[in-house]
């Protein structure tokens, strides 16, 4: 399953809740305000680094760039564009948006 999160980790528990339900074989995509969670020094950095051991983590590049965070992404997080977003949805049988 592709898990999609769009909230800053400081705003809501969506990322925490998502990671508690993400199984191996799935993937995590951070979009909109959730891309802050993919950056170094963020409260979610530890959780993202631990998650990377079990599942690939992606962040939407245009969202990082719009927020000036493109140079601060945690190593191992893959940056994708909207085409990459589409590919991720296509590659996984289901997607779940953790709103």
């Amino acid at each position: 399953m592709l898990h999609i999160v769009n909230k800053s980790p400081y705003e809501k528990n969506s990322l925490t809740s998502c990671l508690a339900h993400a199984l191996k074989g799935g993937a995590l995509l951070l979009i909109e305000d959730a891309v802050y969670g993919a950056t170094k020094g963020n409260v979610a950095e530890g959780a993202i680094r631990r998650a990377l051991a079990d599942l690939p983590v992606y962040a939407l590049g245009p969202d990082l760039e719009a927020r000036g965070m493109q140079g601060n992404v945690i190593e191992g997080v893959k940056v994708v564009d909207f085409g990459g977003f589409v590919d991720l949805v296509a590659e996984h049988r289901t997607s779940q948006s953790w709103l």
């Binding site: 769009n6 305000d33 909207f82 085409g83 977003f85 589409v86």
Partner: peptide
């Protein structure tokens, strides 16, 4: 909210890939 923008960009990218 950004949702409508994200959805639009997603739709356009999907169409661009022949979906």
């Amino acid at each position: 909210h950004q949702a409508a923008d994200t959805a639009y960009q997603f739709a356009r990218a999907a169409l661009g890939k022949g979906h």
